[in-house]
Design a binder for these strands. Sequence first.
DNA 1: TTTGGTAATGTTATGCGTAACATCACTATA
DNA 2: TATAGTGATGTTACGCATAACATTACCAAA
Lengths: 355, 355
Amino acid sequence: MAREPTAVTIQDVAAHAGVSAMTVSRVINQPARVAARTRARVEQSIRELGFVPNALAQSLLRGRTHTLALLVSDISNPFFTQVARGVEDVAQRNGYTVIFGNSDESVEKERQYIQALLGRRIDGLLITTSSHSSHAMLDLLARHEKPFVLIDRSIDGVQADSVVGDSIGGARTLTNHLLTLGHRRIAIIHGPAAVPTAIDRRRGYEEALRAHGIAPDPTLIVEGNFKRDGGYRAAQQLLALPPEQRPTAVFADNNFHAIGLIEALREAQLRVPEDMAVVCFDDIELASALHPFLTVVAQPARTFGTIAMQFLLERLDGTESPPPRKVVLPPEFIVRESCGAHLAARIGATNGRYS
Amino acid sequence: MAREPTAVTIQDVAAHAGVSAMTVSRVINQPARVAARTRARVEQSIRELGFVPNALAQSLLRGRTHTLALLVSDISNPFFTQVARGVEDVAQRNGYTVIFGNSDESVEKERQYIQALLGRRIDGLLITTSSHSSHAMLDLLARHEKPFVLIDRSIDGVQADSVVGDSIGGARTLTNHLLTLGHRRIAIIHGPAAVPTAIDRRRGYEEALRAHGIAPDPTLIVEGNFKRDGGYRAAQQLLALPPEQRPTAVFADNNFHAIGLIEALREAQLRVPEDMAVVCFDDIELASALHPFLTVVAQPARTFGTIAMQFLLERLDGTESPPPRKVVLPPEFIVRESCGAHLAARIGATNGRYS
DNA sequence: TTTGGTAATGTTATGCGTAACATCACTATA
DNA sequence: TATAGTGATGTTACGCATAACATTACCAAA
């Protein structure tokens, strides 16, 4: 056999303590069923040899690995970081180990990961699907009877628990806010059309406009990629419009888009909110702690993670399998400076600039 | 046996394709050694049944799990988030899966994690030790012949590769900068005395002061916990000093401390940098992108992760085991607003306020 | 003293895939 | 034609821990 790191096995402990492997196993798993003095001896041997039971062998036998996975598009996005933190927390408390993976919004990477994870016989999965087309993958999971929970992005027709935010509502809130401040030419930088949250946020934006009797203007609707560079390029596109067609406010549909947007505005020497109002979906907590600036709808990211983990644990532990549950967590609307509300309040809500 | 999710095994595939299990195994691992038409038939069966080889069994046999772990104090700290990103990237490209864990700066949690990871027979570990006392744990790893790499915090006398930043140098740079701007009463909020980086940053701070003929003042040296609340409380402690004893500048030895500090200053209605200059170790990239404000020494966090992973892979792949390597990555000094340099420049470097 | 019961411990088989060895069919060589 | 060689495939044993069953020792009840 091609083994190299000759680890200490239960047999070694058994030999050392002068008992059978089974007795050692009992000491570990059902101590009460071993005579006190034998148990003491075995425990001594375990300590001396530094024996750690091989979870691979246990898992092979029991069909449970106590390992889960969290697959997100980008762990360095603070939203997902917080989700991860929540997930890890609950997992750790329940004796589960979590494998993390980045899909980079690529269906292919996602597929590879799931394949690898199935091989490792994870007990379940938490996933932020990269797009509609993840449907096939989720079927694969279902086929292998692996419970999974959708986080942030749910997909119609998929039989699984999901924890999402109210993207439509949040987008409507932000857009309404801008409308209330008098803006009429409001742009949106939205994520890839294949991503449910991007679609919903755009929908909320359009709904709010229409409710105010404004027809959405295609030139003000720009697609990004949920990353900084996408927000930056989208912003440049908006700034390249002839002055009279330019927006007076922009709604960035995620945090990275907002950052790219702000960077582009700064380069163009435009002031926020004086020259351009900005609102954003998702708070950047640390940035806001340092400098409360962006007006946002903030999502309870960590809670996304903890609730999703709870759901998953219930599926794993419970013998029953209730129908799929869907939790929609409402975002918190936080008015800060970037929308210009404080200026508007100071100079009157309906001054010329906004009319 | 207590198995529930009856997964498809190699035997099932073998039966389906009318060959032995061994042949299926060959199709997967050494396709060239199987006749083309047999191979085609087996591949067909694999696809039809959705067979995914059980990595647990493979690992049990080969003694390699192709699983690594990254143990940090807090994955929601953007520094570690970036490290994680770098680690995951390299791991993914090399066919490794990464388990992430938070130790919360607790030696006990760290111990528990390592125990669990050893049980899972991870091939190696990347770790940001929570303190000196992690020594025993690292011995445990060594005893189990698991290679590990220390990230961000190295410990004297431990035989392992490490990737760290130049904490002393970075701290010296920041402190010198404040001194050059004319500050004489400079405070430091440093991390737990058990953490190497905290010690080094304090050392660099004190060295810089002494080099300018200033004796470190104990009342200006406050210990935090590397978290926001620690920075906040430390700041309050500094602000509670009688006016003439108060610092005119504060050096926060990590990003979270800086945030807590700024929050406390804002609550006290003190302006930064006019009323209090602030510099900080570690950049908060997203915050700075949004609003370039904090003067910092920024560390190439992601590179920490990629280099550490490279080291680990070399230990895993290579038959040779070179002596421990230590990489010290220099931080980048970025002057922005919080130190007041732009004001000093405008009103002259040695005006009354700073003298 | 015999018998049934229980506590303590051991033996065997199993999970799943593969290394090592074995077998079989067929071809090239002498 | 006999033999060695090669390719294709099968059989057995093993990694490690444990469920299920077996055995042993000992005690209480009859």
